[in-house]
């Protein structure tokens, strides 16, 4: 589904990615882990066309999307939930969800699919509420719901549990896993929370200094604590 080869990029002159190779198969859920500042968020933003790729190739559904405009990439079926959620605080829940659809060609009259409200019933309840007044966990659900409203093929998820109550973290993890299974969605998730990663992901890729240094099945990581220790401890 998503295939990165020798991807290099960064902010301005500062290079952050030093040749990333990564494959996310269709229907797969891959988690990206690594210490802070290793380039995980930069990688997602580069895939989305929000940062320029300096070298290398990004292929999505067997199509080269390197250098494509962000909205074009989104229209190819790649969805993105940024770090910090980035919901539109001043708009209602429903308006936020509709913004996930309006950008599509012919999306003006489209209605928010019922599936989104099924996955996140709280959003149906709070439809008319101003999004900025939701709790952190609810805002995260809204951000994910907004990205899923137009039925993408793949979701890039950046730190979905950052700054969220532990009680809700698990709920979000389960919902993401359920959606991936229900909708046949491919997911690449950047996450620090080991618990969430082990419940949702099938494969875990570790990033260090702008490169993918190891990829292992989640089961193997769960069985062998040394792998996590190697990549995450300081």
């Amino acid at each position: 589904m998503l295939r990165l080869r020798g991807l290099m990029g960064g902010y301005g002159r500062a290079a952050v990615l030093h040749g990333v190779d990564l494959d996310v198969p269709a229907g797969g859920v891959v988690a990206l882990m690594g210490r802070n500042g290793m380039g995980k968020t930069t990688l997602l933003r580069t895939c989305m066309g929000l940062l320029p790729a300096r070298r290398g190739e990004i292929r999505f559904k067997d199509r080269d999307i390197t250098g494509m405009a962000t909205h074009e990439i989104a229209r190819q079926g790649l969805a993105y939930v940024p770090q910090g959620r980035e919901i539109f605080d001043a708009l209602t829940v429903e308006q936020n969800l509709r913004l996930g659809l309006i950008g599509l060609p012919g999306g003006r009259d489209a209605q928010v699919p019922d599936a989104v409200y099924d996955w996140f019933p709280i959003l149906a309840e709070r439809r008319r509420q101003i999004a900025g007044t939701l709790s952190g966990g609810q805002q995260q659900m809204l951000a994910i719901g907004r990205a899923l409203a137009r039925r993408p093929d793949m979701l890039l998820l950046d730190e979905p549990t950052e700054g969220i109550q532990p009680s809700i973290v698990h709920e979000i993890a389960e919902t993401v896993a359920r959606i991936a299974a229900d909708a046949g969605l491919t997911v690449l998730v950047v996450e620090q929370n080991v618990d969430l990663v082990l419940t949702t992901a099938r494969t875990i890729a570790f990033m260090d200094n702008g490169r993918i240094v190891e990829a292992a099945p989640a089961a193997a990581v769960a069985a062998d604590g040394a792998i996590l220790a190697r990549h995450l401890s300081l």
Partner: peptide, 10 residues
């Protein structure tokens, strides 16, 4: 940026 990522041609 987020609007663009939602497919909106900014």
């Amino acid at each position: 940026d987020t609007a663009a990522a939602l497919g909106i041609d900014t």
